[in-house]
Each structure stands twice: as structure tokens, then as C-alpha cells.
Amino acid sequence: MTLLTVTGLHKSFGGVVAARDVSFTVARGEMLAIIGPNGAGKSTVFNMVGGQLGPDRGQVLIDGQDITHASPQARFRGGVGRTFQVAQTFLSMSAAENVQMALISRFRQSRGLWTPARERHRAGAVDLLAQVGMAEAADMPCSALAYGDVKRVELAIALAGQPKLLLMDEPTAGMAPQERAALMDLTASIAASQGIGVLFTEHDMDVVFGHAARVIVLLRGQIIAAGTPDEIRQDPQVRRAYLGDSHALEPSQGTGPA
């Protein structure tokens, strides 16, 4: 069942086209990866779905609702959660308070002036931390956690908004190699059990091919291929443009068969 529908997204920065007629869909519970070389337009597309950039043309629909021009706050309410390439958490708060803050916002209590924040939604926050395996660290200051654990807390914060769609910008960047698969396994199981669609960008091809149900490949702002990991792995155009292949050695100096 389709959750996210992106149609005809277009964005240019002063003459340079960063995204050209980009269309794709994400279903509930599906993990979709966007890959491509540096400068291919991954972040542009990602940020247009996330609301950090407004597209010149095109539409972003969630559950049929148009969120193309909605603010990040409105997207949160519309069911979009996200994690960042460099984990963004509230470092002055404990792990639990980070999640409590997200719950407070979800229940529209952020202007509450009386009952202390740390007494609100505590149980819900610890529950969410337990889902990402961080329940024991609930009262640790976020600034004292290892980076891999901060990434997990960030995932719990994103889940606190009860998202239908989770946007993850390079979810495993900066993590030790052995932590990466664990985080993505966790994400996949949560996504599957709660029917959350996940859209992520990633550099680590093991993560992409190991966890994505489908992959789309961007090159110069355009989708050049979309399909299952196996199809992408075999696609000659993708191999030449991105994955690297001995056959790609010669044509890069000429115009090549594009």
C-alpha cells in the first residue's frame, strides 16, 4: 500500500539542475534506499521530501495528503520522522528527556508552564528507548553516550512522533563498521512491525544491499535506475556510473554511450 508518493520533483540552483523530474513511491513497511555519487542530487531530493528545501515543481504526498510546501513542524504532525547524517539530539538532556521532549511536542504541551517536563511521558519514553535497546541508559546524559548509542536515541526520538514515514539521512555515517548492521536490522524490524515506510540515503553498499527492499539510483539529478538490490547490482549503467567496474575505465574521457 502506497504511503509516500513523490511526483515530478524538480529543483535547480542558479542554472544547475540538482533534481530533474524525480518520481518514486514508498509503501508501508518498505525500506527504500537512494544512492548515487556525490553531487548526484541525493540530498536535494531528500531535503525536498523532508521540508528543508522547497521544490521548483512537483509534489510530495503522504497518504494522499499534499505536504509539498509544509514546514518541518507540519510534516512532523503529518507523520514524518527523521534522523540526520550527524545525529541531532539535545545534548543537555538525558536520553529519556530527549524522547520525553518529542512526546511533549506530539501532545502539544511544549508551552506547558507548570508540571515539570521530566515528570511527563516518562513511561512512554522509556518504552521507546527499550525498543531501540537503550532502556538502561535512560537517565544517562545524552552527551555522555557513545556515538552509536546517540544514533539509537535519535531513532527513538523519531519514533516518538508515531511516524508513518521515517527519513534517514546516511543513518550509519560515523558509526563503527560492526554497529552499522545492528542499527539497520533494528530499523528494519521496527519498520516492518509498525508498518513504517523508510526512505534512506547511504554510502555503505553493504547496508544498502543488505537492508533496502528497493533502491533508486540518482545521477546528475535524474533517476537512472530503480529496482531490487539484485537488479541494481546487475544494471550496467549503474555499474558504469557509480558502482565502479573495469569496463568503465575508458569512456569517462569521451562522451560515452549515455
Binding site: 540526520f84 541531532q88 539530539t89 539535545f90 545534548l91 543537555s92 538532556m93 528527556e97 521532549m101 511533549i104 511536542s105 504541551q109 511544549s110 508551552r111 506547558g112 508552564l113 507548570w114 508540571t115 515539570p116 517536563a117 511527563r120 535519535e154 526520538i157
Partner: peptide
């Protein structure tokens, strides 16, 4: 209260 925490949240990380 939540209001003070929200201010701190915006101070710690505007993006988040």
C-alpha cells in the same frame, strides 16, 4: 517545565 525544555531543545539543536 516543558516550555523551558523546549527552549533548551531549540538551543541544543534547531534541526532536531
Amino acid at each position: 517545565a516543558p516550555f523551558g525544555y523546549a527552549l533548551r531543545a531549540a538551543r541544543d539543536s534547531e534541526a532536531r
